[in-house]
């Protein structure tokens, strides 16, 4: 998979390394901005109230 990506990137090794870095950063951004905020409520750290039924509606 990673080899395939590397082979399909344009330019010489330095350009490819730079593009790879940008790709990694883009993936991390998408994860932190969209994927993890969606996944985080599945963990038990949000339940701090004694009336979750009420809180859910807000």
């Amino acid at each position: 998979m990673y080899g395939w990506i590397w082979r399909h990137l344009p330019g010489n090794a330095w350009v490819r390394a730079l593009i790879s870095l940008l790709l990694v950063l883009a993936v991390v951004y998408v994860l932190f901005q969209y994927v993890f905020p969606w996944a985080e409520p599945l963990l038990p750290f949000n339940d701090v109230t004694v009336d979750n039924g009420m809180a859910v509606n807000q």
């Binding site: 990673y2 991390v28 932190f32």
Partner: peptide, 20 residues
């Protein structure tokens, strides 16, 4: 590669939850 990717994802998620 899948294993390495999954591991990296998990580490990133822990960083997100505990730090970010």
């Amino acid at each position: 590669e899948l294993c390495v990717t999954t591991g990296a994802l998990l580490v990133l998620f822990v960083v997100y939850v505990l730090y970010w």
